[in-house]
Nucleic acid binder design. Structure first.
Lengths: 189, 189
DNA sequence: GTCTATAGTAAGATAGAC
DNA sequence: GTCTATCTTACTATAGAC
C-alpha cells in the first residue's frame, strides 16, 4: 500500500478535529460534505473511506469534542477549574464557537439526530457532569451547573453584541459562583 | 380582488404559526420552503407573496414565538407562574418542541442568522427577562433563571429518554426553586 | 486513500396562468 | 393570493482512475 499503516487513523483524527470546529461554527447539517472535507484539506470523495455516512461523522465529532471539554474541567486545582468556568462564560467563548464547547453549538442537532448519536452524547455529558460533581459536591447541583453554562452561552450567541449579552453572562456567572460557594470542594485547594 | 382585504394578514398569521411549530420541531434551516408551506396547507409558490426571503420568515417566527412565551410567564398569580416554570422543565416540554419555547429550539439558528434576526430575538428575550424579573426580584437572577431553563431543555433534548435526562431536569428544577425562594415576589401572591 | 466526475435528489427563489 | 412548472445551485453519496 502507498500509505503508512497509521495513515488512515491519523487522517481520520485530523478530519474529526477540523470538521468539528467547522460544525460548531456553521452548524453541522448546514455544512456540506464538500466544505467539511475542504476544512481538512481534502475533497469530498475521500470522505466515505472514513465514515459510512455524514451522521457517523457527527457521532465521532460529539465523542471527540465532549472528551476534550471534560478534560478541560478536570483541572488539577480548584482555582484552575474556576478559571475554566469563567472562560466558559466569557465573550470570547460566545464569539468563537469553533474553538469552544460542542454542547451549546450542537445540542439541537444532536436532539434531531438518531438514537445512537444521542447515546454517544449521553456518555460524553456524563463525563462532563462527573467533573462538575467534583466541583459542586453533589449530582443535582452538577446538572444545574451544566444547564446554567450551556443556557447562558446558547442565549448569548443568539443575542447581538451589546449590553444584554453582557448582563446575561454576568448573571450566569454570579449564579455559578453561588453554586460553587454553597458546596465546598471535594478536591485539593 | 378575489380575496377579502383581511385575507393576506390572516394567511400570514396562520403561516407564522404553522411554520413556527414545524421549525421548532425539525429545525428551521433543515426544513425546506415546500415543507413549511405544506404545514400551512399551501404550496411554495405562495410563500414569496408573504415574505421576501426564508430568513424574513424566521424573524417573524421569532417575534411571534417569544411574545407568546412572555405572555405565558406573565401569569396573574405567582402560583400560576410557578406552574409554568415546572412545565418548562417537564418531560412533555422536552419531547414536544413544536408546542414549546422557541429559545432552546431555535437559538443556535438565530445565532447563525443575520444581525436583524438577532435584534428581533433580543427584543423578545427582553420581554421574557422582564417577566422573570417579576418573579425573582432582580436583573441578574432573572438572566440566570433564563439560562437555567434554556440550558436544561437544550441538553435534555439531546439526551436519550432515560435516567440522566430526568436527573438533569430535576437538578435544574431545584436550582430554579432556590432562585425563587431567595428573592421574594414583587407581585401579589 | 485520495482524487475527479457524476448520479440523483432537494434546496431557495422566480415566472406566468388563473 | 395561490397554483404549477421551472431555473439554478447545492446537497449526499457513489464510480472509477491513480
Amino acid at each position: 500500500m502507498r500509505y503508512a499503516p497509521t495513515h488512515k487513523e491519523e487522517a481520520r483524527a485530523r478530519l474529526v478535529e477540523a470538521t468539528g470546529a467547522l460544525a460548531k461554527q456553521k452548524g453541522f447539517s448546514a455544512t456540506g460534505v464538500d466544505s467539511l472535507m475542504a476544512a481538512a484539506g481534502m475533497t469530498s470523495g475521500a470522505f466515505y473511506a472514513h465514515f459510512r455516512s455524514k451522521n457517523e461523522l457527527l457521532e465521532s465529532i460529539v465523542q471527540n469534542e465532549l472528551r476534550r471539554s471534560a478534560q478541560l474541567f478536570a483541572a488539577p486545582t480548584r482555582a484552575q477549574a474556576l478559571k475554566v468556568l469563567k472562560g466558559y462564560l466569557s465573550n470570547a467563548h460566545v464569539e468563537h464557537p469553533e474553538s469552544g464547547c460542542a454542547v451549546p453549538a450542537l445540542a439541537p442537532e444532536i436532539a434531531r439526530a438518531g438514537a445512537s448519536t444521542q447515546q454517544v452524547f449521553e456518555q460524553g455529558v456524563a463525563e462532563l457532569q462527573a467533573r462538575f460533581r467534583d466541583l459542586v459536591g453533589d449530582d443535582a447541583k452538577a446538572w444545574a451547573l451544566l444547564a446554567q453554562l450551556v443556557g447562558a452561552v446558547t442565549v448569548a450567541r443568539a443575542l447581538p453584541p451589546g449590553a444584554s449579552r453582557g448582563a446575561l453572562l454576568d448573571g450566569a456567572a454570579r449564579q455559578v459562583e453561588q453554586l460553587l460557594a454553597a458546596a465546598p470542594a471535594s478536591e485539593s485547594s
